[in-house]
Amino acid sequence: MQTASMRSAYGESLVEIGQKNKNVVVLDCDLSKATKTSLFAEKFPDRFFNMGIAEQNMMSFAAGLASCGKIPFATTLAVFASMRPCEQIRTSICIGNMNVKIGAPYGGLCTGENGPTHQCIADINTMRGLPNMTILAPSDATSCKACVLWAAQHKGPVYIRVLRDNEPVIYSKASEVDVLSGNRLKDGNDIVIFSNGFTSHMAVVAADLLEKEGISVTVHDIISVKPIPEKAVISMAKKCGAVMTVEEHNIYGGLGSAIAEVVSQKCPVPMKILGVSDYFSDSGSHQSLLQRAGLTVENIVKQTKSLLNKKE
């Protein structure tokens, strides 16, 4: 399986948009080597601002820059980008619909060994409560690039949840990625799996295994958790009659909740939300934490079958 680093794709994409648009500026909170904004800093030192370990200051500062016509990409680890400065994001950025992009590498459980203070399973829900915010959770390096390019064109706040290194490559070209509607990775009739981030490639592998057992699965990679591509969700839920969601996030408030809000109101069918079941994880390797959360190909297969039993 070919892999590529999402945080590198993030940093490289910033350089690319920086070349095209002089208004793009990049901010970081003393983590530029980890988030790869260092690539932008090397290329455009005059348009890079290291704010120190001061996430709240960075967000309101970014709002000030945006009010003067800049397009700031305020970047730090997902957990610190979404939580410490949450109120600044709401008040300084979202209420005025400021053109600030929040780049958030190391989303999910990939900071494994660092423990629960660094694992990020409550960012999507936090951001989802903020009107005007767009939330993108790409699933590989290529779609990460597509998200950065899209965000630079979009007017208004965008939160981009980036992962780390060695994510399996799903898309070959950024221009092929549909950021807003998401992308059909596999077509089937018995059940639809909506997924994002690191779990999307797992969903595809699981669907291939299920196919061998005669179960036909649609896998749809939802990149935009907000706005959720409602039309696509409804049509696939109706076609398949059962919906499963898989994400590297708390089961409360993330992709699963966003899908459930649509399904329950517009096209009720049996549904299952797979994610981290509302607990703080320990220190451990990314793999061991995914295993514990049940975010594995085997469990997706198992849960799909048991959900199918609930279908009429």
Partner: peptide, 12 residues
Amino acid sequence: RKINSRLQGHPD
């Protein structure tokens, strides 16, 4: 920092 250890990556 290993799984199931009492010694977490940051103090707990």
